[in-house]
């Protein structure tokens, strides 16, 4: 059947990379036991994927948190260091980071394995994929500039609630005493996100993640990722039909370079590599 997806060893290879990345980002194991976050100098380096830096295990900074913090910081200076970091990650890997190096992407994929009815991709989901750009502009950029606070982290980020809020509140009685309406709101957002990810593949990634929105801007120029060999491609679109993201073609802004399309291409025209795209 055209578009039928078969699992190969490559799928498990990507899963191993995701797991290793998740462990590396959160290797401060004692933090989960003590409820204390890592305070070493690695926290000055941003990890490429979405991983809350208040997670007790987090060793690196979150790029979105760093950007919002820099924008909300005093003197409104241009955050050269954070912007340079985004440019570096984007031009080297772009949304390969989403597919391979994002712990929250891994969590979404694991949630999607729960046996519940699934929502298929459609024009509606393709349209919804634009929402993340609005979230980027409003909550990540404008809110910190105007309200001097991290908008996305404060109001929305389910990774922060799951990886940091809940573990820290469970461990620290002092924090538990300070729980209020905002915590309840964030837990509700997290619950909704979890449910949505169970029935819709990578729903947060596709519709709401501002980090994916930023990396998607680099899709024409990223050094490494999925590539289509033009001379072999017949335009059968088996790759697009098999893809669970809202791509119009392999390697576009919605492509997370997971490689599922390689398994279904009858001409074996799809590969990972560097250099220019189709």
């Amino acid at each position: 059947m055209r578009g039928a997806r078969r699992k190969t060893g490559r799928d498990f290879g990507r899963r191993y990379v995701q797991l290793i990345a998740a462990v590396l980002y959160n290797c401060h194991i004692t933090g989960f036991a003590t409820g204390r976050i890592y305070r070493g100098s690695f926290k000055g380096i941003c990890a490429p994927g979405l991983n809350c830096y208040s997670c007790p295990g987090a060793v690196f900074a979150c790029p979105l948190g760093a950007l919002q913090g820099a924008l909300a910081g005093s003197a409104r200076r241009i955050p050269y260091y954070v912007l340079g970091t985004f440019l570096l990650f984007g031009v080297l890997l772009g949304r390969v980071i989403c597919g391979f190096l994002c712990p929250f992407g891994l969590i979404q994929e694991l949630l999607h394995a729960v046996p519940l009815p699934k929502i298929r991709k459609s024009r509606v989901t393709r349209g919804l994929s634009c929402v993340k750009y609005g979230i980027l502009i409003v909550l990540v950029i404008a809110y910190p500039l105007i309200r001097i606070a991290p908008g996305f982290c404060r109001i929305f980020c389910p990774a922060g609630t799951l990886e940091a809020g809940i573990p820290l509140v469970l461990k620290d009685a002092h924090l538990r005493e300070q729980i209020g309406g905002l915590f309840s709101l964030k837990v509700a957002v997290l619950a909704a996100c979890i449910l949505l990810c169970m029935i819709c593949y990578r729903a947060f990634c596709r519709f709401f993640c501002p980090l994916g929105a930023i990396y998607s801007l680099f899709h024409p120029i990223a050094f490494w990722g999925i590539r289509v060999e033009e001379e072999k491609c017949t335009g059968c679109q088996a790759c697009v039909h098999a893809c669970r993201m809202d791509v119009r073609r392999v390697g576009d802004r919605e492509c997370i370079h997971c490689g599922d399309c390689r398994n279904v291409c009858p001409e074996r025209a799809i590969r990972y590599g560097g250099g220019s795209k189709k």
Partner: peptide, 15 residues
């Protein structure tokens, strides 16, 4: 970046 990341972000955790 480091000075922010080594402190618990109360906004991030919903407080």
């Amino acid at each position: 970046v480091m000075s922010r990341a080594v402190m618990i972000c109360l906004d991030c955790i919903g407080i």
